[in-house]
């Protein structure tokens, strides 16, 4: 049985929506960050699926760039979260509210 491409695209759209919801709803910085990673991986899935459907390698190449950049982002992001956890004693984004106006 061959799974049609549209199934993959729908799954990717659902994953992306779960990621967006997670960012908007959750308050823990780590979980917000994980939701962002979910969004990126949903994008990767749709890139690969479309690449297969269009018989073009461009999408697969793009996925490599996305993964590399996401890895760099993880390194920076986790360092920032650790830094703010040290000064605040919490990784809750609502606890960081020095800046407002």
């Amino acid at each position: 049985m061959i799974v049609p491409v549209s199934y993959y695209l729908i799954l990717a759209a659902i994953l992306f929506s779960i990621g967006v919801t997670g960012v908007l709803v959750r308050r823990n910085a780590i979980i917000v960050f994980m939701s962002i990673e979910l969004m990126l991986n949903a994008v990767n899935l749709s890139f690969v699926a479309m690449s297969r459907a269009l018989d073009s390698l461009d999408g697969q190449v793009f996925v490599f760039f996305v993964m590399t950049v996401a890895a760099a982002e993880v390194a920076v992001g986790l360092a920032l979260i650790v830094a703010i956890f040290r000064s605040l004693g919490s990784a809750d984004v609502d606890d960081a509210h020095v800046l407002r106006g």
Binding site: V23, A29, V32, F33, I36, V76, G77, L80, I81, A83, I84, R86, S87, L88, V93, A96, H97, V98, L99
Partner: peptide, 15 residues
């Protein structure tokens, strides 16, 4: 860092 306003700016900008 460890100035809190700077760390908070970075976290918000990053997320």
């Amino acid at each position: 860092r460890p100035r809190l306003d700077s760390e908070e700016a970075a976290l918000k900008y990053f997320l």
